[in-house]
Computed example of a mutant assay.
Amino acid sequence: MEAKIKFSKYQGAGNDFILIDNRKLHFDSKNEGLIQKLCDRRFGIGADGLMLLQEKENFDFEMIYYNSDGRAGTMCGNGGRCIVAFARDLKLISDKTDFLAVDGSHHANLENNLIDLQMIDVQEISRDGEAYVINTGSPHYIKFMHNLVDLDVFKAGYEIRNNEIYKTEGINVNFIEKEGDSGYFLRTFERGVEDETFACGTGATAAAMTIALHENLNGQITIPIRVLGGQLYISFLKDGTSFTEVYLKGPATFVFEGMI
């Protein structure tokens, strides 16, 4: 008889994840096919990715992240916020936490339904034509657009992600457009999911840095970014091309739990 897996489902601005408490190491994380099946929206639970919460010395927990294709992923900002909410609901933490992820340690503050997650510092920015290329825990290609609501993000993102430069390692492709006086709208094609997602935390962080570079902003900055699934806020201290004290703030919401 197949083992039953207890899971919880969370979403952060529409970026949805399967969360599994793996402190007893019962989940077969090497089974790509199983992770794919669980993330499948027709034959499984359905999610953009799957995360395991595991024990780690000197930290509250460790975040192990897998894309919906079953492979281990790079850092996921919205996933990071969701696993913090999961850890709170498991009573492992209360109003703050320090945890370990694939790109190093992260601090987060919890305030009602909003989670403010510290992201890695960024010093290196490169360009690809008019686009910016920034690694915020995951690699991102960011380009300004007009009429973003009408863009075929799957087609445009797929072409860039699979071009000669990026097809081997893959890259997340982001399109941003100014909205009103201070806000921005972001749409993202994510590698590993190989489709547009409702939100991408590391992408929103990279987009906010691109905006600050493009508009030559310096000092302590907060940039609101709207994504298909909701609203995110990115804050950092910018000095030239150096970004420190980087935080990604947004919702992380429990959806349901079950056995599969």
Results as ranks from 00 to 15, higher is better:
residue 163 N to Y: 03
residue 216 N to A: 07
residue 89 D to F: 04
residue 260 I to Y: 11
residue 22 N to Q: 10
residue 231 Q to H: 09
residue 42 R to Y: 14
residue 162 N to Y: 14
residue 145 M to H: 14
residue 143 K to G: 02
residue 47 A to D: 07
residue 18 I to Q: 07
residue 56 K to C: 12
residue 17 F to L: 12
residue 53 L to N: 04
residue 213 L to K: 12
residue 50 L to D: 07
residue 136 T to I: 00
residue 76 C to E: 03
residue 128 D to I: 11
residue 72 A to Y: 01
residue 75 M to Y: 03
residue 101 A to R: 02
residue 229 G to W: 01
residue 186 L to T: 08
residue 39 C to K: 08
residue 74 T to H: 09
residue 26 H to W: 03
residue 169 E to N: 15
residue 78 N to G: 01
residue 29 S to I: 00
residue 9 K to F: 00
residue 49 G to A: 09
residue 169 E to W: 08
residue 190 E to R: 10
residue 182 S to V: 05
residue 54 Q to T: 14
residue 31 N to S: 06
residue 38 L to N: 03
residue 192 G to V: 07
residue 240 G to V: 01
residue 247 Y to G: 03
residue 108 A to I: 06
residue 51 M to K: 05
residue 217 L to E: 03
residue 228 L to A: 10
residue 181 D to P: 03
residue 124 E to R: 13
residue 120 I to H: 05
residue 161 R to H: 09
residue 27 F to R: 04
residue 52 L to V: 07
residue 39 C to A: 08
residue 99 F to Q: 02
residue 160 I to Y: 11
residue 141 Y to I: 12
residue 232 L to S: 02
residue 39 C to Y: 09
residue 188 T to C: 01
residue 168 T to K: 12
residue 24 K to F: 11
residue 5 I to D: 11
residue 59 F to H: 15
residue 252 A to H: 06
residue 60 D to K: 12
residue 239 D to R: 13
residue 135 N to F: 01
residue 53 L to I: 15
residue 26 H to Y: 02
residue 33 G to F: 03
residue 104 G to S: 02
residue 71 R to D: 00
residue 180 G to T: 02
residue 241 T to Y: 07
residue 245 E to Y: 03
residue 58 N to Q: 11
residue 92 L to Q: 11
residue 28 D to M: 00
residue 232 L to N: 04
residue 42 R to K: 14
residue 166 Y to V: 00
residue 39 C to M: 08
residue 82 C to Q: 01
residue 197 T to A: 13
residue 209 M to I: 06
residue 253 T to H: 09
residue 204 A to R: 03
residue 144 F to R: 14
residue 254 F to Y: 15
residue 161 R to S: 10
residue 119 M to L: 14
residue 46 G to I: 10
residue 87 A to V: 10
residue 129 G to C: 12
residue 229 G to Q: 08
residue 89 D to E: 15
residue 45 I to T: 12
residue 155 K to C: 15
residue 42 R to A: 09
residue 106 H to K: 05
residue 243 F to H: 06
residue 115 I to D: 02
residue 54 Q to R: 14
